[in-house]
């Protein structure tokens, strides 16, 4: 396993989509390659930071227009 193969398999490794033999070879490489370990770790953090981020509250005017559009259309659908 070299650094290039680690990058190629990075997503599959992070998503737990590898068989145990390939996973073991990656982990063996990571034990002695600081650069790859940092790449794996920072890519994992990238995913987690985006995944855990809370969406900002809707601007009040946007929220109001959504409510108005819903009321208008729902009335039409029910009519």
């Amino acid at each position: 396993m070299n650094c290039r193969s680690i990058v190629k398999e990075l997503s599959n490794y992070l998503d737990e989509g590898l068989d145990s033999t390939l996973k073991d070879s990656i982990e063996k490489h990571l034990e002695h390659c600081d650069d790859c370990r940092v790449v794996v770790d920072t890519t994992k953090k990238t995913i987690q930071i985006f995944c855990n981020s809370e969406p900002a509250p809707l601007p009040e005017d946007t929220k109001l227009r959504l409510r108005e559009a819903l009321v208008k259309r729902l009335r039409r659908v029910r009519a």
Binding site: D15, E16, D34, C36, R37, V38, V40, D41, K44, I47
Partner: peptide
Amino acid sequence: MSTSKANPLPAR
């Protein structure tokens, strides 16, 4: 040297 351990994302 980096001390952070690289583990896959937790399965869930």
